[in-house]
Lab assay of single mutants.
Amino acid sequence: DNLVIALHSYEPSHDGDLGFEKGEQLRILEQSGEWWKAQSLTTGQEGFIPFNFVAKA
């Protein structure tokens, strides 16, 4: 599955970004460039995340 774990917390800075906490698990929905579309397994919310803040779970 496309699961990743957050290496750092991220505060959203643009509409459509997904904020998350360090250690949170996310499911990657789309990989494109440096911003990936993801869904939080904690909150169920979707949005874009910086790819370098996460690692394969």
Results as ranks from 00 to 15, higher is better:
Q25G: 07
E30A: 09
V4K: 02
L41K: 02
I28T: 01
T43K: 03
W36K: 00
N2A: 08
I5W: 09
K56F: 15
N2Y: 14
Q45E: 12
E34M: 14
W36M: 07
K37I: 10
I49P: 03
L41A: 05
F48C: 14
F48Y: 14
L26I: 05
F51P: 14
D1E: 12
D17R: 10
A57S: 11
D17T: 11
Q39A: 08
Q39C: 09
W36L: 09
T43R: 03
I28H: 00
P12K: 08
A38T: 01
S13G: 10
F51D: 05
E21T: 13
W35D: 01
G16K: 08
Y10I: 04
H14N: 12
G23W: 06
K22H: 05
E34K: 14
L7G: 02
Q31I: 08
F53H: 07
D17Q: 15
T43I: 01
Q25A: 10
G16I: 06
F53A: 08
L26E: 02
A57P: 12
V4W: 15
L7P: 04
L26K: 00
V54F: 08
N2T: 11
T42D: 08
A38F: 04
E11D: 09
D1A: 10
H8A: 12
E11T: 15
Q39P: 00
E34N: 13
F51W: 14
L29F: 06
Q31V: 08
P12T: 06
E30P: 01
K22G: 03
G19M: 07
Q45F: 09
P12I: 06
A55S: 10
A38G: 05
Q45D: 09
D15K: 12
A55T: 13
N52P: 04
V54T: 03
P50I: 07
F20L: 04
L26G: 00
E24C: 06
S9N: 10
L18T: 01
Q25N: 08
Q25H: 13
S40I: 05
G23V: 01
T43H: 03
E11H: 14
D15T: 11
G33P: 03
T42V: 13
R27F: 08
L3K: 05
I5G: 01
F51Q: 11
V4C: 07
A38K: 00
D17S: 09
N52D: 12
L41W: 03
Y10D: 00
K56A: 13
W36S: 02
S32W: 12
V4R: 05
K37S: 05
L41Y: 05
T43N: 07
N2K: 09
Q31S: 13
F20R: 00
P50G: 02
N52G: 09
S40M: 03
Q39V: 13
F53E: 03
